[in-house]
Amino acid sequence: MQHAIDIDGKKISPSSSGQIAVCGFCGEKVRGRCGEINIWHWQHVNKVECDLWKEGETDWHRVWKSRFPFNWQETIIIKNGEKHIADILTDEGLVIEFQNSSITPSAIAVREKFYGKMIWVINSESFKNNLVTENVSEKQLAEIEKKYAAKIIHVKKYSSIGLESIKKKPSLRTSEVETLKDNLNRLESVTEPFNIYNKNADTFAEQIINIWENDNLSIDPSLMKIITDDALVSKNAFLRLRGDFKRNKHYLDLPGKTSSEIEQLYL
């Protein structure tokens, strides 16, 4: 043992050979063994049955335990009236047991049931070449890959379909643009005559207005609408104007030969 209890009830390591303390497990006296060959440890003064689970420790045991915090080493655990000394007990309640010699499966099962959450550290120096290792991570990855292989295929297929759909969209948009261009050309061919009519109507109306203004004619506002109609409507309005002129001179005060000039302009 590397730990014992002093007269103040504290867990201590041996500091000199012959130092006396008591075993924290069985309460019997232990003596310090502090030589130059073995790691310093405690030894029972009298041969007593302490923890039956504890075996004769070697330097291998002690070196391993020394790698952990002092308070974690050789901790007594009591459960349901039964107690044992754990090599290491962490603050999180994890037990670590160091096993240097052979142990039966039944003994392993009993200790694991008592400690609960635990880890075994085995000295395999004498039989390490007989061990068969297995890469757990690769096995698990293979199972995951097999499990999701169908889903991966589905995702790839879906992505491929989606990509093809995206590729088709530009060609569809190009076709739609061409169709719109054709429709626009047809509309322009239909509207072109109306543009010509309007231009002719504006020119026709401006010529009439210029003649009237040059001859100082008085123009009824209701007749001004001819400047905004197409050529056909303008001509009809002019015909009505000429008829009104012949029947009544109320609309226009025409000096000289203005009426004949208007007649000529119409022809």
Rank of each mutant, 00 (worst) to 15 (best):
I196P: 02
D215K: 13
S175A: 12
N185Y: 10
E213G: 00
I78P: 00
E82T: 11
W60R: 01
S15R: 13
K146R: 15
Q99R: 06
D215V: 04
D182F: 08
G24K: 06
E143T: 13
E192Y: 15
D182A: 15
T58C: 06
P69C: 02
N130G: 08
H61S: 03
H41R: 01
A201C: 07
T228Q: 09
T258L: 09
I78F: 01
L187Q: 10
G9L: 07
L239Q: 11
V110I: 14
G32C: 05
K168C: 02
F238L: 15
E176T: 03
E143Q: 15
Y158A: 11
V110G: 01
D87F: 01
W120C: 02
R67G: 07
D91W: 05
E28T: 02
I152E: 13
G256T: 07
E36T: 02
Y251W: 09
G56W: 05
E82N: 10
S137T: 12
P170T: 05
E138P: 00
I103L: 11
E134S: 09
V63R: 13
K167S: 01
I166Q: 02
S106W: 07
G116Q: 05
I7K: 13
E36L: 03
K199R: 11
D202R: 15
L217K: 07
F204H: 08
E164Y: 06
K47G: 02
G24V: 05
N248G: 09
V30T: 06
F238G: 00
W212S: 07
V22S: 10
I161K: 14
F127C: 12
D253H: 09
H44D: 05
N210C: 03
I77H: 03
K151S: 05
N214R: 12
H84Y: 01
L187R: 07
K151L: 14
S13Q: 09
P105S: 04
D229C: 13
P69N: 06
K167C: 04
K181M: 07
V95Y: 00
S126V: 10
I5M: 11
A149Q: 14
A205M: 06
F194V: 15
L232I: 15
E145I: 12
P193V: 04
D91N: 14
E261S: 03
E143Y: 12
S259E: 14
W212R: 03
R31V: 13
N200H: 09
V233L: 06
N129L: 11
I262M: 15
R33I: 01
G35V: 00
A205W: 04
L52Q: 13
I7L: 06
K168W: 00
K113A: 11
L172G: 00
N248L: 06
S218L: 12
K147L: 13
I76V: 15
F194A: 12
K139D: 05
K235L: 14
E263S: 14
Q264Y: 09
I76Q: 03
D182H: 09
E49F: 08
L241Q: 06
L141E: 08
A86D: 08
L232V: 14
V63C: 00
S102E: 09
R240Q: 13
E138Q: 11
V177N: 09
L267A: 10
Y251N: 13
K10L: 12
V30W: 02
I153W: 02
R31H: 01
A201D: 01
L223P: 01
K139E: 12
S66M: 09
M118D: 03
D6N: 15
D202V: 15
